[in-house]
Design a protein around this nucleic acid. Structure first.
Lengths: 139, 139
DNA sequence: CGGAATCCGGGTGGATACTG
DNA sequence: CAGTATCCACCCGGATTCCG
């Protein structure tokens, strides 16, 4: 019912609202970055790096730059020594982060289910001629 | 700010609910697929291909298979000639699609903004001959 | 501390051709 | 109509190293 018909083409280039959103948050870490900054307020680079586990400097910086270029996050350099920089959300970024909340809730509620499904999939993978453990497939 | 701290680690493997969700919908087309199927009910392959613009057969099938393996969509083959197959959402998939609604709304509301930002970015890219590295933008 | 630059392997994903 | 199969360019993203 309210399955939202908000997906009506309005501007050229995007097929629908979801399409537009995806172009902005496409990227392995962007949603997590947005979400963590939304929760923590202005967040220092190091803190962000620790929060978004397994992200490398290169990727974190890259995604942050794109988010900044897209007007979702704001970078503040305090020009101090040692360096201090923090990242905060713009109003636009804040509104997008709000839209991510349901996704987070969904994950929390269905984490057990997701874990199970992934375990099954990994079990199938390990039956294949695939030596060594780690299966960081994803994305 | 009710910025939801639903992002509390609960199960090993995932840092938070959002992390879990992202592992499931990571993939260029999955959110769009979920959303279109959610809107249209059981959707035929061809219809989906037309709905998700610019997707190739290969990618569409691949993503559909993963969604199916993850228990989000259900494939129905009517074994007819000519072939007829449709895809529908499982309860799990339906709940996830619901969680996508805010993202779609956000895109619709901020499409003008997004379009503008992207235009600026593209403008900058085309201005730079960039001596140290070929940056032939995007497709 | 907060990056930037470079190298590099593997996966992603497009194009095309073919099948039932 | 609903896929499958193959080739392959490209870029994502990790590791490493260096800089202010």
């Amino acid at each position: 019912m309210p399955t939202a018909q908000a997906c009506t083409p309005t501007l050229p280039g995007f097929t629908c609202g979801l399409d537009a959103t995806l172009r902005v948050i496409a990227g392995k870490w962007k949603p997590l970055i947005l979400y963590f900054v939304a929760q923590g307020g202005p967040t220092r680079y190091g803190a962000l790096r620790r929060a978004v586990r397994d992200v490398s400097d290169k990727m974190l910086i890259q995604q942050l730059k794109e988010l900044e270029a897209d007007g979702l996050v704001k970078r503040t350099d305090y020009k101090e020594i040692p360096p201090r920089v923090d990242y905060s959300l713009t109003p636009l970024g804040r509104s997008l982060a709000e839209a991510l909340v349901p996704l987070c809730s969904w994950g929390t509620e269905n984490m057990a289910e997701v874990t199970r499904v992934f375990a099954e999939r990994d079990a199938l993978n390990s039956q294949r001629p695939e030596p060594s453990g780690q299966s960081t497939r994803i994305e």
